[in-house]
Simulated scan of single mutants.
Amino acid sequence: MSRPRPVQTDPRATLRGDLPDRYLTPVDIATMFEVPLETVYQWRKKRTGPPGFRVGKHVRYDPADVRAYVVQQRQADADAA
């Protein structure tokens, strides 16, 4: 008997709704912000994007940190206006 495949959710929904119950990948971040993957890597290198962390050789992002980053960016944008 085959097992049902898990439903893949749209990573952009993280910014609009509930947080996913998994750490996000750089591809998820690129999809969420609709930017090239290379931009995500540059953000990490320059420490300008959402904070990530390493798990072995892989970079992951905590959804709570990504949400906090978005809130911070929106506030900074509102303050500049």
Rank of each mutant, 00 (worst) to 15 (best):
residue 55 V to M: 15
residue 31 T to Q: 13
residue 17 G to N: 15
residue 64 A to C: 07
residue 31 T to K: 10
residue 59 V to Y: 14
residue 68 A to H: 14
residue 39 T to G: 01
residue 34 E to R: 01
residue 72 Q to D: 13
residue 36 P to W: 00
residue 25 T to L: 10
residue 61 Y to T: 01
residue 59 V to Q: 10
residue 18 D to V: 15
residue 75 Q to P: 00
residue 28 D to S: 05
residue 22 R to K: 06
residue 37 L to K: 06
residue 56 G to Q: 08
residue 38 E to G: 02
residue 2 S to K: 13
residue 69 Y to A: 04
residue 39 T to R: 08
residue 65 D to K: 09
residue 22 R to S: 06
residue 57 K to H: 11
residue 74 R to W: 12
residue 57 K to G: 09
residue 66 V to D: 03
residue 22 R to Y: 08
residue 40 V to A: 01
residue 70 V to G: 05
residue 30 A to P: 01
residue 56 G to T: 06
residue 68 A to R: 12
residue 56 G to R: 06
residue 62 D to M: 08
residue 64 A to I: 02
residue 24 L to A: 02
residue 6 P to G: 01
residue 79 D to E: 15
residue 49 G to T: 02
residue 81 A to I: 15
residue 65 D to P: 05
residue 34 E to W: 01
residue 58 H to T: 11
residue 13 A to Q: 14
residue 13 A to G: 12
residue 70 V to T: 13
residue 24 L to D: 00
residue 14 T to D: 04
residue 59 V to I: 12
residue 78 A to K: 14
residue 69 Y to T: 05
residue 27 V to I: 09
residue 54 R to K: 14
residue 58 H to A: 11
residue 62 D to N: 15
residue 8 Q to R: 13
residue 33 F to S: 01
residue 5 R to I: 05
residue 79 D to W: 14
residue 73 Q to C: 10
residue 51 P to Q: 08
residue 13 A to C: 11
residue 3 R to T: 10
residue 24 L to N: 00
residue 3 R to H: 14
residue 75 Q to G: 15
residue 35 V to T: 04
residue 53 F to W: 06
residue 73 Q to S: 09
residue 46 K to H: 11
residue 20 P to S: 05
residue 14 T to Q: 03
residue 49 G to Y: 05
residue 12 R to A: 09
residue 80 A to E: 14
residue 29 I to V: 11
residue 51 P to T: 07
residue 23 Y to S: 07
residue 58 H to V: 12
residue 40 V to Y: 00
residue 77 D to P: 08
residue 22 R to P: 03
residue 10 D to S: 03
residue 8 Q to M: 13
residue 46 K to S: 09
residue 36 P to E: 07
residue 54 R to H: 15
residue 38 E to T: 02
residue 7 V to H: 07
residue 32 M to E: 04
residue 38 E to N: 03
residue 19 L to W: 02
residue 56 G to F: 05
residue 40 V to W: 04
residue 34 E to L: 02
residue 68 A to T: 10
residue 36 P to L: 04
residue 13 A to P: 02
residue 44 R to M: 07
residue 49 G to I: 02
residue 45 K to V: 05
residue 22 R to C: 04
residue 42 Q to M: 03
residue 68 A to K: 12
residue 67 R to T: 06
residue 49 G to E: 03
residue 12 R to T: 08
residue 11 P to R: 07
residue 41 Y to D: 00
residue 23 Y to H: 09
residue 69 Y to E: 07
residue 77 D to F: 12
residue 27 V to N: 08
residue 46 K to A: 11
residue 37 L to T: 00
residue 68 A to L: 13
residue 14 T to I: 05
residue 21 D to E: 12
residue 11 P to I: 06
